[in-house]
């Protein structure tokens, strides 16, 4: 057993393998990606959809039902999925291709790097089950996909926080001419960001709360937990900034640099390994700009994760709001 992991006794709770992690969310939206893609496609006949036998499981079935003639089921063949999407883009279409993070990035990596990214083919890869959002173990948990995708030149990499951001991001990436890898939260998805006040922009980090004691920089679903952590810290008199950085690449250096330059401690929170993703990008930036920062990373350590129910996994790998708050306290001491 990895000594870095919290030791927890088996709880005997049946693993709720396929449920979405809606946690304590009060607002939920159903299949935000599927609905957003349908809306974008209504205004743009070049948009087509593809999947590799995961239509029902990535919400693109809604698009397939609405536009059957614009939907292409590729079977369980991820290399063919990405290769065909690249070909469709070269033929002038805007393909949205769905599968899970692990199958897109591990099996079809070469097809993404060369077929899609090298020539900037206008392919949108939408990948489900990021990080610890599935109870299956190492085969299904996309824990290093951001590291892989951020390493590919020309690729835009997005890890949205919630239903609001997914809806906005789908329109934005449909309008953007270039290859995109976007993580997907599927099914019942929490609404964390208020659509009246939040506006997604590719490549822009957004300050959600301001505080001068500690900066929490978060991406993906961890932002919901970062906001909860900030509330808990506030009750203790610690004022935290929460900077939500959903575009990992291109990285919003300006905003991050300005923030980490003016707080005494920084916490990163990502639904991904602690290396190769958000924390590494922040650390790189600090070094490049000669900033000395105290950094604590919340993320998955260097291991394949267990299977089990989502609350069990969140505790086991210290990925909850309480862990983010604790990391902030530690960073301050």
């Amino acid at each position: 057993m990895n000594p870095k992991l919290a030791k927890l006794p088996p709880r005997g709770v049946a693993g709720n393998i396929l449920a979405s992690d809606t946690g304590a969310a009060t607002h939920i939206a159903s299949a935000p990606f599927g609905h957003a893609l349908v809306r974008a496609a209504e205004n743009n006949p070049r948009i087509v959809g593809l999947t590799a036998d995961l239509g029902k499981y990535t919400d693109i079935h809604l698009f397939a039902e609405k536009f059957p003639e614009r939907f292409f089921q590729m079977g369980m063949a991820e290399q063919s999925l990405i290769g065909c999407a690249a070909g469709m883009a070269r033929a002038g279409l805007i393909p949205f291709a769905t599968t899970y993070c692990v199958f897109a990035t591990r099996r079809a990596y070469d097809f993404i790097a060369i077929g899609v990214a090298l020539g900037r083919a206008n392919v949108k890869i939408i990948a489900g089950l990021p990080g610890l959002t599935t109870g299956y173990g190492g085969t299904h948990q996309g824990i290093e996909d951001l590291a892989l995708m951020c390493s590919v030149p020309n690729l835009t990499v997005i890890d949205p926080c919630d239903a609001t951001e997914i809806e906005q991001a789908i329109q934005a990436i449909a309008d953007y001419d270039g290859p995109v890898y976007m993580r997907l939260l599927r099914g019942q998805v929490p609404v964390v960001l208020d659509p009246e006040h939040y506006q997604f922009e590719i490549g822009k980090a957004k300050m959600l709360t301001e505080g001068g004691d500690v900066a929490i920089i978060s991406t993906g679903l961890m932002t919901g937990r970062a906001l909860d952590a900030a509330k808990a810290l506030d009750a203790e008199g610690i004022r935290a900034s929460v900077l939500h950085l959903s575009t990992l690449k291109p990285f919003d250096r300006e905003t991050v640099e300005a923030l980490i330059g003016r707080v005494p401690a920084v916490v990163t929170a990502e639904n991904h390994m602690q290396h190769g993703g958000l924390a590494s990008a922040v650390a790189d930036l600090a070094v490049d700009s000669g900033l000395k920062i105290r950094l604590r990373r919340v993320g998955i350590p260097d291991c394949f994760c267990d299977s089990g129910s989502l609350p069990y996994l969140v505790d086991r790998y210290s990925m909850g709001a309480t862990h983010i708050a604790q990391a902030a306290r530690e960073a301050l001491h």
Partner: peptide, 29 residues
């Protein structure tokens, strides 16, 4: 009786750490 429960060796997708399971399948192919 522990199948699929948290902490069990009998995970819903068979891991090679369980006796008698030769490879970790599940990423199909």
């Amino acid at each position: 009786g522990t199948y699929g429960t948290d902490g069990s060796r009998l995970e819903m997708a068979a891991p090679e750490t369980t006796p008698g399971v030769e490879i970790t399948g599940g990423s199909l192919g």
